[in-house]
Design a protein around this nucleic acid. Structure first.
Lengths: 139, 139
DNA sequence: TTTCATTTTTGAAATCATTGCAAATATATA
DNA sequence: TATATATTTGCAATGATTTCAAAAATGAAA
């Protein structure tokens, strides 16, 4: 469990001024295991922050993604969600219940890919889709 | 290079009636190496087919994806594109020029992932993002 | 502290890829 | 041919995300 002060420090190191909104959003995404959307982040923080704009949430999440502090998932093409888990992992999305779960990797993504000479890779995502065990059993 | 007759046969085997529109769309996506969007498919076929609706293109592409005949890419979250290449491969999207290129894999995706017992995996996509060699040099 | 410039936030309107829907057309079967 | 079913069409609606300009907050200089 990382402290609020450490998260603040992390923003500063990335050259991002730790405003109240930014710190709250950063904390929420980093602590969540739920891959929240901008809308979910907004709903969760709205009450605590008094006034908060959905636009701010969108802008701030983009800021964090560009700074490499969090990652953006496009596993479900009808919405975008965000991931504060910094460990290398894959994602599985159940086509029935919609749940997105983290899966451990036993090796790095890039080791599998050929012909990457000359490329500069900033981001890698492995997305799996199908049926989760619960939905598979119900079928 | 696969023939039109073979593509027609493939549709029939999948239980899909090979209408003029469907066959044209299937042929276009299978032969293209460009990962076309629905819009691109529509623009490319519009003249040849006399009348063609963008809605038909969307519906048909979804039909093919659900049948496992082509795959849908969500590597760029601002649009959806489609891939007729049936070989296992990864995708790289350049953050500068937007180009999406195929990359060979030297091993299967799933071998890397742990904890998949009980899951039924229908689709797997590995997306890499960064700068392509051309944009990397220009920088 | 006050002033001024810069950065950040806000909310309403606009955007645009995708979908819903109902009518029109094409195809298969009897 | 007549009838039922499947497919296509085009327009309107949807909804996540972005644009934009004004308001608020912050930092630096005086």
């Amino acid at each position: 469990m990382v402290t609020r002060a450490e998260l603040r420090e992390e923003l500063v190191k990335a050259g991002i001024r730790p405003s109240v909104q930014r710190l709250a959003i950063f904390e929420y995404v980093r602590q969540s295991c739920q891959h929240p959307t901008a809308e979910v982040v907004y709903e969760a923080l709205c009450d605590d922050l008094g006034s908060l704009s959905l636009t701010t949430v969108y802008n701030t999440l983009k800021l964090f993604v560009d700074a490499g502090l969090i990652s953006m998932l496009t596993i479900d093409d009808t919405f975008r969600c965000f991931d504060g888990n910094r460990c290398c992992h894959a994602h599985f999305r159940c086509n029935k219940c919609g749940k997105i779960v983290d899966l451990q990797m036993n090796k790095d993504f890039l080791s599998l890919v050929e012909g990457l000479d000359g490329y500069c890779v900033n981001d890698a995502q492995l997305y799996l889709k199908g049926l989760c065990p619960a939905c598979e059993n119900k079928k």
